[in-house]
Each structure stands twice: as C-alpha cells, then as structure tokens.
Simulated assay, not measured.
Amino acid sequence: MTHLRLEGAGEAAQRAALMEIVRASPRLMAAFEAARDLDLPDWWIVSGALYNQVWNALTGRPELYGVKDIDLFYFDPDTSWAAEDRVIRAATARFPGEPPLEVRNQARVHLWYEQHFGRPCPAYRNSRQPIDHFACRTHCVGMKLLESGDFEIYAPYGLGDIFAFRLTPNPVMDNRATHEAKAARAVALWPELAVEPWPGLRGHAIASAATPT
C-alpha cells in the first residue's frame, strides 16, 4: 500500500516528509507566511491542515482536500475578548480566504470552553499545552515558519500515527465524543484510515467511528 510507504520510517524521516509536503502546498505556505508576518506571541498552525495534507499527498488527493479551516494558535496574557477580536480581524484580513482561518488566543480558552463543550478545560500556560490535549494523538501536531525559512515542529506524541493513517485516542481529557465524531468524518473522507477505539470501548468504537453522521 503506497500510502503507507513512510509508516515506520522513523521520526527524522517523517519530520522531513512533513516539511516537504507543507512546502509543496502553495496555500499552506501562504498561510504560514501570513502567520509569520503577523508575529503573534507563541504562534502555531496546528492540527487538521497539517495531517490532512499529509494524507492528501500520500494518497494523491487534491491540495487541502477535506481541510475545513486553518487553525492558528497564539498565547497572549491579555485575555480580554477585545484583544482577541483585534487579532482575529487583523489575521483574517491578511490570510488567504479559503479554507477559512480559525484563530484563538489559548490563554483565554478556559474562560469559554466549559460553556461551549460542557466540561472544564485547564488554564493553559502556553500554546503547546492545548496541542497536548487534543482528543486524538494523531492530531497533536503544530508547525511554525521561522524567519530563516526553516520550520519548527511540535509533535508531543510523534508523527508515527499520521504516517500510519491511524487515529489514536488521547485520553488526557474526557474527549471520547470528540474523538469519535472526528474519526467518523475523517474515515468518510480518507477511507484508508484505521481508528483506534477510546480506552475501555475496544470492539465497538471502531465501527461507530467509521459510520459518517
């Protein structure tokens, strides 16, 4: 199966492949250049736009197929909505319009998370911590473009799951529903994926996740 050709290639080879895949995407590179120009504190482009594009590149699908938005994290101790809104407006004006930009100050996520999702969220101390808490370890990846033109990659659980086309749950928070919903959408778009069940649900979560809702 050629889409799994980098499975088990090792961390260094997978990091090099991720950077090569990103550089080959004009729309992703435009987003990274816009983010670098904004120069927000502790910024990262994270999650779907990165691992989805890996799957697209390895399966021959179009650029940014299946990517709903580009998630831009930053960390500003000013947790007022007014300050975040100014950043959102400035970023939206600078970024390419498609896919849409989702920019959030990770310093204030805990202020609205419980009301929105029905459970509390830690008060993060930087923009890497929320990456650690994504519902799926496969999704836990962030990148930033440096002034030198090099990339910095943050992947607390490595890149192995991405290149293995495997969705592995991350039970650091009670995110079972999120894991299963995201898995269902992903399998509908990339049927090559394998879905690991939420801990304690082995034998049934794979089937439920693979059924689009």
Rank of each mutant, 00 (worst) to 15 (best):
V54T: 03
C121N: 13
Q115L: 11
N126W: 02
L28S: 02
G97E: 13
R36Y: 01
R202A: 15
P122Y: 04
A83Y: 01
E63I: 00
T211R: 15
W44Q: 04
I131D: 00
P62N: 05
I88K: 15
W44T: 04
S47L: 01
P122C: 03
H179K: 08
P41R: 05
Y65L: 02
N170I: 05
T211C: 06
T79L: 11
R108S: 06
R176P: 00
H133G: 03
R104C: 12
A82Q: 12
L159F: 05
F163C: 07
A194S: 09
D37C: 08
S127A: 15
R128V: 07
P199A: 05
I21C: 06
P99E: 06
P99H: 07
G118K: 13
H110D: 11
N56Q: 03
W43D: 06
E20F: 02
R185I: 10
G60E: 09
H133E: 05
E147N: 10
H110N: 13
E102M: 05
A16N: 08
I206T: 14
C136Q: 11
A24M: 03
R36K: 15
A186D: 02
E7T: 14
R86E: 15
V87Q: 06
V109F: 09
I153H: 06
L72C: 12
Y51I: 00
S80N: 01
D76A: 08
A16E: 15
F165E: 04
N105Q: 02
F73P: 07
V187R: 12
G10R: 06
F75D: 02
P156H: 08
H133N: 14
Y113D: 03
W44K: 09
A155V: 00
D132N: 14
H204Q: 12
G149S: 10
S80W: 04
L159N: 09
W55I: 01
Y65V: 05
L28E: 02
Y154T: 04
P77R: 11
L72V: 09
M1H: 14
D69P: 12
R27D: 10
T211P: 00
A123P: 00
H116R: 15
H3G: 08
P96F: 06
A90H: 10
M19N: 01
Y154S: 06
L146N: 13
K182I: 03
P191R: 12
A24K: 11
W112P: 01
R137I: 04
R119T: 14
V109Q: 11
H179G: 14
T138P: 01
K182P: 00
I131R: 00
T2M: 07
H3R: 11
R202W: 12
D39F: 01
G8Y: 01
V172R: 14
D150L: 08
R89C: 01
P199T: 07
G118R: 12
N52H: 14
E98D: 14
W81E: 13
V195I: 10
E180N: 11
A12N: 00
F151G: 10
G97T: 13
V187A: 10
D42Q: 11
G48C: 07
D161Y: 13
L38D: 03
R23G: 10
P212S: 12
